[in-house]
Write a protein that binds this DNA or RNA. Structure first.
Lengths: 126, 126
DNA sequence: GTGATAATGATAAGTTATTATCAATAACCT
DNA sequence: AGGTTATTGATAATAACTTATCATTATCAC
């Protein structure tokens, strides 16, 4: 069975950053942000913490083609994402689209879908 | 400047398979299909041919998160894709969705978008 | 046909992201 | 506080693709 888990400064910091973040973060972003508070934080620790939180259902991963996954807290409700082509950050979009099924060929069965918009975020569109 | 390009059996085969294919193909799929006709075909040759065709604007790449890119002939018109979770093949979907912009936060500028459906293709849904 | 050289195939090397290893450190129970 | 052991950080090792290298082969202009 799984070993009893211990509370550490590193994990607390990482969890808090993710909890507070209004957008999904990559491991690299998370490492950078947490390093400001927890000096010398190892990248492996970030991977371990993120993996455990996904495993525990506290985090969900946001997969975007050609990009490393981002992570955001679970239970935000169905939504999609925007990837800024300049600053490389990913943002949440509110809501979804109807009629996705109308795209579907006969006999195909959909289990999930992803909609990603690419462009410039507000900051980069300046 | 670029060296004059020569016509080879390998490139002809690859171009023809892509031209005839009704769905986007990965380098691996393309290599497998072309190897039946051109024995001993090297994977590097496939990468080189695909790269050149993309460069020339004859092919477009189809990027799907967590998957190697697929390639399809350019100029098919705007459409999206379906990724079968069982057989791992990618299919074209006809048309698009309206009102993508309604998802957009203020001041964000969209340049392109991707819609990918995941599920089982007709063959796998059986 | 012949020569110059682009293309090929086999494979080494490079990328990028992630996981494994392991000695040192720090949590937590009594 | 002290001991057990989970966790950490540094880094080696993987993994999955893609590109580079280079001797050999094949294309094409003449």
């Amino acid at each position: 069975m799984s070993p009893p888990l211990r509370r550490t400064k590193q994990r607390d910091t990482l969890a808090e950053i993710l909890e507070r973040s209004e957008r999904p973060l990559s491991v690299a972003e998370l490492h950078a942000a947490a390093s400001k508070r927890t000096r010398g934080l190892g990248i492996a620790t970030v991977y371990r913490a993120v993996g455990a939180m996904v495993e525990a259902g506290e985090l969900e991963s946001v997969e975007i083609a050609g990009e490393p996954p981002r992570y955001e807290r679970a239970g935000k409700g169905h939504h999609h994402h925007f990837a800024c082509e300049r600053c490389d950050r990913v943002f949440d979009l509110a809501g979804c689209l109807e009629n996705l099924r109308k795209l579907l060929p006969p006999k195909f069965r959909v289990r999930s879908h992803a909609v990603t918009l690419y462009g410039l975020c507000a900051a980069c569109a300046g």
